[in-house]
Design a protein around this nucleic acid. Sequence first.
DNA 1: ACAGTATGGAGAT
DNA 2: TCTCCCTACTGTG
Length: 302
Amino acid sequence: MPEGHTLHRLAGALHHAFAGRQALVTSPQGRFVEGAALLNGRVVEGADAFGKHLFVHFAGEQVLNVHLGLIGSFDVLPHIGALPAPVGAVRVRMVNEQMYADLRGATLVQVISPEQVEATIARLGPDPLRVGTPGNDPERSLARLARTSRTVAECLMDQSIIAGVGNVYRAEVLFRHRIDPFVPGNKVKKKSWLAMWDDLVALLPYGVAFGQILTLDSQLEVARDALGGRDPAAYDPSWGGIMPGERGGFVRGDAARGVRFERDYYVYKRDGQPCLVCGSRIRTQLLAGRNLFWCGRCQRRH
DNA sequence: ACAGTATGGAGAT
DNA sequence: TCTCCCTACTGTG
């Protein structure tokens, strides 16, 4: 389910499965026939993500740009023997000798130029999963935050302020820092916002490594153990599945192998249930068209 | 069979 | 603030 961690994990999987080799690209569903023709037979140079945008770079300066939206999925799988017939509405299928990838339900699928990639990234705020790369500075988001009276909860979902955060991470990071979701952006303490940024920088790589949103301290402790002290940010997300081996065949490398977590959060979708910290009832309210969840007693900070 | 829901976003009003 | 789009799955009749 697509927040930023999903896209970065997916980029890693696609990169590992397709980079450096020719790919056949089709549109079994028929709604991306022209775009697929532009890419079909080209060598894949690599794949990466910024915020919730996915970019698959093909030779000849052709870039497949995908946004999964609310319901999109992009499965990257091995094919052993015959290629399986497409199931459901497969808008794009990529295939090489060993792997195939099926895209369904995406809100945006287009072929763009490297210049258009830059323009897309320029419209986004800094991405906590891109920390350390040029221009990806939380100070940029802070400048935007200080200029708006919209609630901090809305700001966290505004991709032009901070890129990659969705409804789950938003609710959870606000709770983790005990921030009142309704505080106007311009009333949020700089220290609070930067603490949330730093927390996202630490949290999102666990989401990438495990393919799940992990926000409970108890989960993160188990996750750290599973990685054996390795930095999740240095973790190769492609290890999450079956991938092509060095020369033919497949390998399944996965430090987090077999480690799955119950879907469990501090506040997300827990309306009516007791707060894990203070026991008061978790509340919910529609805010700018999205369900917000928070603890009215714990979250009072600015 | 149909309604409702979902971790998103754009465009109209 | 509303309306629509994208798809799969769940619950209801």
